[in-house]
Design a protein around this nucleic acid. Structure first.
Lengths: 217, 217
DNA sequence: AAACAATTTCAACGGTTGTTGAAATTGGGC
DNA sequence: GCCCAATTTCAACAACCGTTGAAATTGTTT
């Protein structure tokens, strides 16, 4: 193998780490569990990635660029399709959410684990501020700018609190806790991302519209 | 002291555990950190609570009944005030959220940590299914029933997915990650629960209305 | 096939973890 | 002031943690 493509074990470590970190969090997983799950020695993780924290970061980084690109493409495409007035709230929310759904249909089951890991990090008071901003904030600001153009009466406070609501609804869905399965008696399932987004998009769009409507001041 | 009221150290352990578990999760906190923060020996936690997991459960249980009572009171009070047609969506959502805000104004700063802990548990694929249902599901079903009466055209799927959106938006807010502070350049702050709920209530209510409106079938 | 670098395993280290049994301390009832 | 029980500390255990240096293996180039 030519030095750049020895994917099997290195990639396997990332896959297992991704799955375990998403389920138990950073501190709930040991390097030995990861190595055992990947069928390799403990020291191999250190050899490839250095410290445990570096492995965590590597898992986090691996799919971030692809996800951002897919979202940015979706946003720009819907902006291009919309006329001079720009896309509607629904179209922008859709561009924000649908790439996540598509990521799950690539056949790579790792995407589900990765998105659950994002949910863990985004909801953590410790990891959230430390890891989310650097990779995701720039694109989020692009989406918020697009929303501002679609909602010309919105204040900054409105937009950011509404985005917080969107981000929270999305995060809980990505976390795949299976709570909705039990609550609904099996009528809804956490696995069904299509149903989740089909309900989330009109829900969130209506929320934005309501909050960002002109009011008496 | 008469055996039932030696609150100082036992309660202090719960307070510190609550704060640390909320910040770092179950596995991210050691009993020694908790004991150190409480100014007691490590063994005292075991003496009072048994295993580490039992302490975690004790922290989780401590305020659950109070929270449920406050929410149930708020729901029944708004149902009593509303006529025979029942309360509006906004009133139900308000009954679901405002007690959380009030809990923070009791002067006990532990409530903030407790709600952040709930957010951690609710968003965790591991802890969520294990701990949330037993204490919270019954009341959640009451709220969903009330919402069903306010939204007679809603299907079960609509209601549960919308509740999922509500729960997610709430969870991210309770987690107090401070991300909205940075995103908004300081215009919004995670600490401001009143502002959060002021935006969340109309947002969520509009979402419910939109999704649960009669459609072509 | 020899030489070399990249990969992988082996073995071990110092430090930390949750837990426990026994000792020490505290505080109220007689 | 003595007894008893509840509380708190002390000391220590076996198990496990992340990390590292050296050895073994593998794969590629010459």
């Amino acid at each position: 193998m030519s030095r750049k493509d020895s994917p099997s074990k290195r990639e396997k470590i990332l896959d297992v780490a991704e799955e375990l970190f998403a389920l138990h969090g950073y501190d709930g997983v040991t390097l030995r569990q990861i190595a055992s799950g990947a069928g390799v020695d403990v020291a191999l993780a250190s050899y490839h990635f250095g410290k445990k924290l570096d492995l965590f970061q590597a898992v986090f980084d691996r799919r971030a660029a692809l996800l951002n690109d897919a979202r940015r493409d979706a946003l720009h495409r819907c902006q291009a399709k919309a006329g001079k007035r720009g896309p509607s709230v629904e179209q922008i929310i859709e561009a924000f959410l649908r790439p996540l759904e598509l990521a799950q249909e690539t056949g790579d089951p790792g995407w589900r684990n990765y998105l659950a890991l994002i949910a863990y990090i985004n909801n953590s008071p410790y990891w959230g501020p430390r890891m989310m901003s650097k990779l995701f904030d720039a694109l989020v600001q692009e989406f918020i700018e697009a929303l501002r153009r679609a909602l010309p009466e919105a204040t900054d406070e409105d937009l950011y609190w509404c985005y917080n609501n969107l981000s929270g609804a999305l995060t809980l869905t990505l976390a795949q806790t299976g709570r909705i399965d039990k609550l609904s008696g099996g009528r809804c399932t956490s696995d069904d991302f299509e149903a989740a987004y089909d309900h989330m998009i009109p829900f969130v769009a209506a929320g934005f519209r309501k909050v960002c409507k002109k009011r008496a001041r």
